Computed example of a mutant assay.
Amino acid sequence: MAFINKVENTNNIGNVVNNKNKADGSFEDLLKKELDTTNNMMQNAEKAEADIATGKVEDLAKASITIQKAEMQMKMVLEVRNKAINAYKELLKTQI
């Protein structure tokens, strides 16, 4: 039981912030922020790919990591989209 209380009192776990006392954040704001982040990461990845192709890259490992991070972020956004579409379809099946 002490472990559960300890987890509940944690305000920040990784990038997830405990918002149970904050009413200012909404799912829409979170979604917009993540889409902006994804867009910026994809632009950085495209720049890194262009630098690799032209030979202007100074650190190949850093460019590779940038591309992989953007790819993972895009996969996460696509999964959220898929889950939202599936939830919408389930709501359409619901009878009133």
Rank of each mutant, 00 (worst) to 15 (best):
K75N: 11
G55P: 06
V17H: 10
K83F: 12
K69I: 07
A48Q: 03
K20C: 00
Q43T: 13
V80G: 03
V77L: 14
S64T: 13
E8Q: 10
L60P: 00
K22C: 01
K56L: 08
N21F: 06
I65R: 13
M72N: 11
K47A: 08
K47Q: 09
N5S: 08
T10R: 14
N21W: 04
A53H: 02
Y88A: 13
E79L: 14
L92T: 08
V57Y: 05
A2C: 03
D51P: 01
G14A: 10
Q68L: 03
K62Q: 05
D24T: 14
V77P: 02
L35Q: 15
F3H: 15
A70W: 04
K20V: 07
N82F: 06
N12M: 14
L35M: 11
A50P: 00
A53K: 10
A45F: 11
K75V: 04
K93G: 12
N86E: 14
V77N: 08
T94F: 09
K89A: 08
S26C: 04
Q68W: 00
N82W: 04
Q43H: 11
A23I: 09
L92D: 12
E71I: 04
Y88I: 06
K47P: 02
K83G: 02
K32Y: 03
K89L: 13
V16K: 15
S26P: 04
E46L: 07
A70M: 01
E8K: 13
E34P: 00
K56Q: 13
I4M: 12
V77A: 15
E58K: 14
E58C: 04
E58H: 09
G55E: 05
T94C: 02
D24Q: 06
L31R: 15
I96M: 04
N21P: 00
K6D: 12
L30C: 05
A84H: 11
N82T: 08
M41W: 10
A53Q: 08
K32S: 04
